[in-house]
Amino acid sequence: MENYTPREPRDNNAPPARRKQKKQSGCAGALLYLVVIFGIAALLSMVLLFSANDVFAFVKDNRSVTLTVPEDTTVKALSKELDQEGVIHYGSLFKLFVTVTGKDTTVLAGDYTLNPSMDYGAIIRSLRNSTGENTVTITIPEGYTIDQIREALLKHHVCSEESLDDALNTYPFKWDFLKGKTPGKNWLEGYLFPDTYEFYQKNDSAVQVINKMLNNFADKFDQPIADGAAGLGRSMHDIVTIASLVEREAQKEDEFAEIAGVIYNRLNNSQQFPYLQIDATVQYAVGHKDQLTEADLKVDSPYNTYTNKGLPPGPIASPGYTALYAASHPEDNGYYYYVAMPDGSHLFAKTNAEHEANKRKAAEAFEKASTQ
């Protein structure tokens, strides 16, 4: 007879085996819950990031958008149009910004030039102007410095001194050619294109005024100039700097490329000619005067090309198109020296001996001119 092993009594309260399967389902549910939470958080982060970019214009396109605002236009209608034109990306957010910041709910009628690179605050300031206001036409000559441009704008009451200084020295303009540059005193030197402009007198936004000049520079620094710079292995900053030197040194347009050639000859032969020795850079450092002194030529300044090798740290004035083109297409000559004549032309020389002879000729010409 086989041995009989009694079974252990069954515990009726024991959970069925399939409950393990429920526990696994619970883990999967928790994991799904976490995925959903993280997904929502990521989505909200993206929304906040894109919204902040739209409000503060961290990374947006640089282009001009002309907008005509009819009479009695509300912010709601304007927000929709700004969205449609691509100046902003979120019309509802712009409307909310206007409401929260307590700005007016109506906008002056008129024609406006806006830019997607402008933040919400700059857009609102620009929309305070209308074609119904008095306009003033200002000509910024080639070779004007930031200080001279500032004086011209203030003289014609285009905007307040405080707002203009803030725009010139602290406003973070978003143009590609300004990347890597930090706002500060004269950081826009050379990039405010000299031209004739029309502004709204006493009512124009300083940011809009400066942005109009920067936009003009971007248009004028065209493909031929960019191609010339690339062929020379020079950055835009180098080209604008060299162009500003040419603009301040040359008085006759047919000598622009010739003087640019002298500058490049010295830069490309730095062992023999370590110093550019350009008077205009010293003038920028000490202030413009008729005659530089020996002390001026020794002034401690990074812009003194008599004591500092190579190019100065940046432009010394706003060059026009001819100077920009000459800086990117210099004349291929063997000159290393030039000296000014009374009529604004220059005598060029390849050797120091020739240069000394030219200096004597120039001195005699100036002396003769002074007695006439």
Rank of each mutant, 00 (worst) to 15 (best):
D254A: 10
K181Q: 02
K174R: 14
D166A: 10
I210D: 00
A357P: 03
F273N: 06
T293K: 11
Y306A: 08
A280S: 13
T305V: 07
D72V: 13
Y306P: 06
D219E: 15
Q372C: 12
G228P: 00
T68S: 15
Y303G: 02
A365G: 11
F273H: 13
G121C: 13
S117T: 09
M46I: 09
V282S: 00
Q223R: 14
A357H: 10
A30E: 08
G102E: 01
N308T: 14
N269E: 07
A327E: 05
Y337D: 01
A167L: 05
N53P: 04
K103A: 13
D219N: 14
R10K: 14
L93I: 09
L108K: 11
H89I: 02
R7S: 04
R10L: 11
K174W: 01
K350G: 05
T196C: 10
A326K: 06
G91A: 05
V35N: 04
E198W: 09
P183L: 05
P15A: 14
H156N: 12
G287T: 09
A257E: 08
V59D: 10
A362L: 11
V98S: 10
K252C: 04
R63Q: 08
L43C: 10
Y33D: 03
N352M: 09
Y90S: 02
L311P: 08
V55R: 05
L267K: 13
T241D: 00
R63N: 07
Q84L: 13
A317W: 01
M118I: 03
E354F: 07
I225N: 02
Y200A: 11
I225R: 01
N308G: 06
V59M: 13
D72K: 15
A353P: 01
A167G: 04
P183F: 03
D195S: 04
D119W: 06
A369D: 08
D219R: 15
R125S: 02
S345M: 14
A57C: 02
G29E: 08
I138F: 00
D104F: 02
D119P: 00
V107A: 03
A363C: 08
F56M: 09
E258A: 12
Q283G: 07
M118P: 04
L153D: 02
N3L: 09
K350N: 08
T371N: 12
D279V: 09
L192A: 07
G287S: 02
T281Y: 00
G233D: 08
T139L: 03
A230L: 12
K212T: 12
H355R: 10
Y4Q: 12
L32V: 09
Q201F: 06
G29K: 14
D61M: 13
G190D: 01
N215V: 02
F217R: 06
P319G: 00
I88S: 05
Q272W: 08
A257G: 07
K368F: 07
D176R: 08
R7H: 14
A285S: 11
N215Q: 12
L324K: 07
I37L: 14
N12R: 15
A349N: 10
